[in-house]
Design a protein around this nucleic acid. Structure first.
Lengths: 148, 148
DNA sequence: TAACTATGGTTGTAGATACAACTATTTGGT
DNA sequence: ACCAAATAGTTGTATCTACAACCATAGTTA
């Protein structure tokens, strides 16, 4: 049985890089006694930019299952970073709002994340970054097209 | 507070792509009544290429915590895909061997994974793929250097 | 209007991940 | 030879993820 070398494909790099970055960001937060996961940070980022998002939309834009988002939001609500609010015109919908504590935490953690990204992308020419992002976009498009 | 556009960095793409690919590969397996996760498949791949790896080395080469590998191997052993074996010359060590069932399952799933990767990388020039992998390698090097 | 369908969300269950704390074994230094 | 440090692995606990099944509400169609 002939094996292709998976290290010549993009897949394993994406998987490992994701694990390693999750690990590192959680560690950086912990070192400053910040109780926040990378995933929670992403939710804060979206809400900080646009408050009152629909729970399901949050799941969609972060490529998560709605049940994952339910649990993620449970944990964040338990920690008073955000709150659920019933939508008036459609009672099925939860609108998600960022709380002061969440806003402050995001402002505190944003520089940490930016620094992490700077460190990560250090020494990589802007041109290479742009090309890489373009390739990743294409990969995602291919993938989503095939998922249907 | 000024927000950099994180979509201009590589991070969010890696995170989403990882989620989406995990989702897709698990789905493809399930559609063929194959009870195997993407993560278990990776372990099978390594053992298929080189049997009898040390458990801790498996954790390292897959960028996982050793406790994660303990649980991953528990699940795979429960399903008779692999087995633990005590090392003779160092009784702390577990050697991990692939079982016939695991070998057969890997041979059955390899074409599925190869096809998935082909579909994913479709339309992307070889040159772009190579450049992207180079960039991802650099990212990982930067990250691991910073993690210490 | 009634029945069917689609949508938003939760719960049960289970795998994956990892930190903290622990046991067992080996290695190394005195 | 002994004791401290390093190494391999497990367990308790917690978060993240998602499928299956479900409830409630809204939209659509007969």
């Amino acid at each position: 049985m002939i094996l292709i070398d998976f290290n010549d494909t993009i897949l394993p790099w994406v998987g490992r890089l994701n694990l390693e970055f999750t690990y590192l960001s959680n560690k950086k937060f912990r070192e400053q006694n910040i109780n926040l996961s990378k995933e929670q940070w992403i939710v804060l980022k979206y809400l900080y930019q646009k408050d009152g998002l629909i729970q399901n939309d949050l799941a969609f834009i972060t490529s998560r299952d709605k049940t994952s988002m339910t649990r993620l939001i449970n944990n964040m609500e338990k920690n008073a970073l955000i709150r659920r609010e019933n939508c008036e015109y459609d009672r099925r919908i939860n609108l998600i709002f960022i709380e002061d504590k969440g806003r402050q935490l995001f402002e505190k953690t944003l520089p940490i994340m930016q620094n992490l990204i700077d460190v990560l992308q250090k020494g990589i020419p802007r041109k290479s970054l742009e090309q890489t992002i373009e390739t990743l976009k294409t990969l995602e498009t291919n993938l989503l097209k095939y998922t249907d």
